[in-house]
Computed example of a mutant assay.
Amino acid sequence: MDLTTTAYGTWSGGRFMHYGETLPEDRYLQCIRTAYEAGIRTFVTADVYGNGKADELLGEALADVDRESYCLVGMIGHDFYVGQRQGNKGYPRFTDPELRGSGEYKDYMRMACSKSLERCRADRFDLLMLHNPDDIGYTSEAVWDGMRALKEEGLTSRLGIAPGPANGFSLDIIQCFERFGTYIDWAMLILNPLEPWPTGLILPACEKFGVKVLTRVVDYGGVFHGDLKPGHAFKPGDHRAYRPQGWVEHGLEKAERMLPLADKYKLTPIQFASIWNLSQPMVESVVPTFFQEPVENARDIELMIREFAALPDVRFTPEESEQIRVIGDNTGCMTLKGASKRHETSERADEWPMRPELLELAGRYGLGEDW
């Protein structure tokens, strides 16, 4: 089963990623069941969330439904089996040279995939993605030979790449498509009407190589869910508190300018943002983050899930899409991760020095040299 238009991610609900309130386990499970009951048929998990606990809870929540009735998406990449957590950096990638050499990649990937499937109570993924790769993950033939082997062995039906955890990696992704695009069916990218950049730079390459796109952060940190107001105070540890000061107010102001188009199509804000994403080339699935905001009169997270599940089958015209992109244009608003001229050495798993072949690629795709 390929991905459906609407998808639900196990990072929702605050148990494994610190957004809003942390739901108790029974309600977290009920949210997954609510998504299924409301008609969502794609579920996305990552083995590193809760060191496998998210996989387990997803498997438990869907234990009583027909496995053939939903699409299961998994992600592997962070080694929490042997690797040691490095504070806010999280666990190292399995490709870290201090953990293993390239000759050991395939065995690790088979082990990680098999254990994740066991926790999910499944015998295969419909899509397995390489999660938050480092520069080795983007460029190593041994890594992608390992991914291909998992498909050949029947552990997954499709393969993909999920860059992150921050935004960027544009040139790295395009080069990965050029080298390994015959293996790659899907990419999970950050995109929403308030963040059309930099993913907009990658979509033409997705078209060229036939890579479908699953978009996350369509909610823009909750702005398109409707519970954030100017001056919102985030709880200590909430990941959104690390965004630049004033981002909520700035986002709300821009979103307000977009809402006449939402009204035209009778869309709620999250439906509007999702339809804008789906109106972009190669975008075929959307997976928001669902929050239970710790504020007075906040809507129940279950209502947000049902609202998203009722996404109507409409698309914006190219002119309407461009109108929204111009309002939301965020070009240059952040320091991008991945290959960059800022670095002479690779000191973090998500930042590394620029390579000449990437600048050559940027020239071929008309992306300039300011990286």
Rank of each mutant, 00 (worst) to 15 (best):
G52L: 09
H232L: 07
R119I: 00
P133C: 10
G246H: 10
Y28L: 04
Y81N: 11
L359H: 06
T45R: 00
R67A: 12
F16D: 08
G154V: 13
E357W: 09
S170K: 05
E256R: 14
P318A: 08
P269D: 07
E351F: 06
N51R: 15
Q175V: 01
K264R: 15
K341D: 15
V217D: 06
T10C: 07
A309Y: 00
T5N: 05
R158V: 05
L358W: 03
A255P: 09
P312T: 11
N132D: 15
G181K: 01
G226V: 09
L58R: 02
N277L: 04
M354L: 15
R158N: 13
G332K: 12
C176F: 03
A122I: 10
A233D: 12
E56C: 04
A187P: 03
I76Y: 08
W247L: 02
S274N: 13
I76G: 12
T289A: 15
K212I: 05
S69I: 04
G246K: 06
G221F: 07
D219Y: 14
E320I: 08
L191F: 12
S140R: 01
L203V: 10
E37C: 00
L58M: 14
R100Q: 13
D350I: 14
E351N: 12
G101A: 12
C333K: 09
H232S: 06
E104R: 11
E56Y: 01
L130F: 10
G332D: 11
L159M: 11
V286Y: 00
L267R: 03
L3C: 04
I275Y: 03
E357L: 05
T215S: 11
Y70G: 04
I301C: 03
A273K: 11
I327Y: 01
D64V: 05
H78P: 02
E369C: 13
A362Y: 13
P281D: 13
E347W: 07
G59N: 09
D123I: 12
L203R: 08
D123E: 15
H18D: 12
G101Y: 08
E320C: 06
R355F: 11
I327T: 05
V248H: 00
H18W: 05
D55K: 02
